[in-house]
Amino acid sequence: MRAASPLPGARKALEVRNLRVGFPTEEGMVQAVGGIDLEIERGRTLALVGESGCGKSVTGRALMALQPKHAEVSGEIWLTPGRQEAQLDRRLRASSENGSFNLLQFKPGGKEMRHVRGGLISMIFQEPMTALSPLHTIGDQIMENILLHRTKNRKEARSIALEMMERVGIGNAQRRLDQYPHEFSGGMRQRAMIAMALSCQPALLIADEPTTALDVTIQAQVLELMKQLQHELGMAILFITHDLGVVAETADEVAVMYLGRIVERAPVRELFRNPKHPYTKGLMRSIPRIGGVGGRLASIEGTVPLPLNRPPMCGFYERCSERIEGVCNRQDVPESDAGPGHKVRCFLYSEPEKKGDNPHE
């Protein structure tokens, strides 16, 4: 039975259902993403947060079909561009359901996905120095995307690239267009990456740690620029980060990820004011406080376990100070309502399933 597509006219630019990304190894299956649900409305920002190794970047790359060839991906990724059908590639129009596309029906290297990647979905990668080619000028690299998705006229493509560089605040853009990445500072390279990502006016922008290694002044400028361009273009943004300070400034909603699962989702103010999951509480306690009493910073003991052949149980069990012995380590944790728009995956807020070996029976 084929899953239903999103409703016509829905404001959701992206809807992810039960996305799983696994990597088969000799020891077994490494489940980097273990069945997550996400949705982002047009013009809004969802922050995906969590410590290193929890599956954030794997999720972002899966949305663009950039995972390694041996990866096993399942679920549904529905993209609703919100554009007139006449502007879309004919192959995409043919596979559309109510103006939406399930991206996992396309081959990662197929023509349909190449039209989506860079055109309808763009990504700002974590480290611009390694994402940019040192052998080509900044202008040529921005123009490549424009020539693929917007126009075949090189003069027009150069004009669009120049306009985008000016809009992202790169001074003397006419000269900078013909320079190489090593001639740009870190902040300027990041701006060039943003110009490249936005040059085709995507429906969804994936920003993977876009302010990493930038000083706070440039970071603030980059974040303000992204918000301004989002307002002008009406695009949805998936902001991948571990910096809760950046989340507070940029996000409308937050999804907290741990060991390949979304353990808590809520509007940004609600999450900061009333975190529910023990992991989220630990993240909040670890934020340095200005003017606080001297002492050691709070930390979450232990490390993220390897997601290899793990049994059905709470992924945070081994590090949790509020765990329930015989419950949290016996079965998978369902998602529960913790308030308006607030979801949490924890047995502190839901009843465990009644089983024969349940110690509470």
Rank of each mutant, 00 (worst) to 15 (best):
Ile170Ser: 07
Glu253Cys: 00
Val293Arg: 14
Ile40Lys: 09
Ser74Glu: 09
Leu92Val: 07
His342Pro: 07
His182Glu: 08
Glu27Gly: 12
Glu156Phe: 12
Ser74Lys: 06
His342Ile: 06
Phe272Gly: 03
Arg191Tyr: 12
Ser199Gln: 10
Val116Ile: 15
Asn18Ala: 12
Pro334Ile: 10
Ile124Pro: 02
Ala197Gln: 08
Leu308Glu: 11
Gly356Gln: 09
Thr212Phe: 08
Asn274Cys: 03
Met196Asn: 04
Ser52Pro: 07
Gly186Val: 03
Val254Phe: 01
Leu297Cys: 10
Met164Ser: 00
Arg11Gln: 12
Gln84Tyr: 11
His360Asp: 10
Ile194Ser: 15
Glu335Ser: 12
Gly326Asn: 14
Gln84Leu: 11
Pro202Glu: 07
Gly139His: 07
Val293Lys: 14
Gln230Met: 14
Glu183Arg: 13
Tyr258Asn: 05
Ile170Asp: 09
Ile218Val: 15
Gln174Asp: 11
Ile300Gly: 01
Ile138Arg: 06
Gly292Val: 06
Lys155Leu: 13
Asp357Ser: 13
Arg150Thr: 15
Gly43Cys: 15
Ala236Thr: 13
Ala207Asn: 11
Gly82Asp: 01
Gly245Tyr: 05
Glu163Asn: 06
Arg90Tyr: 13
Met196His: 05
Arg330Leu: 12
Ala62Gln: 00
Leu63Gly: 04
Gly43Ser: 15
Asn172Arg: 10
Val58Asn: 06
Ala10Trp: 12
Leu177Arg: 01
Ser299Pro: 04
Ala220Pro: 07
Gly292Pro: 00
Gly169Ile: 01
Glu335Thr: 11
Arg2His: 15
Glu27Met: 15
Ser321Leu: 14
Ile121Gln: 07
Ala4Gln: 15
Gly291Val: 02
Val293Pro: 03
Glu39Phe: 04
Leu306Glu: 14
Met1Thr: 14
Arg83Val: 10
Gly292Glu: 14
Arg189Glu: 11
Thr25Val: 03
Glu264Ala: 05
Pro288Ser: 15
Tyr180Thr: 04
Pro267Phe: 04
Gln219Phe: 09
Thr130Val: 08
Tyr258Gly: 05
Glu353Asp: 14
Leu205Lys: 03
Gly82Ile: 04
Val58Arg: 07
Pro278Cys: 07
Gln201Cys: 09
Gln201Lys: 15
Gln67Thr: 10
Pro312Asn: 12
Leu14Val: 08
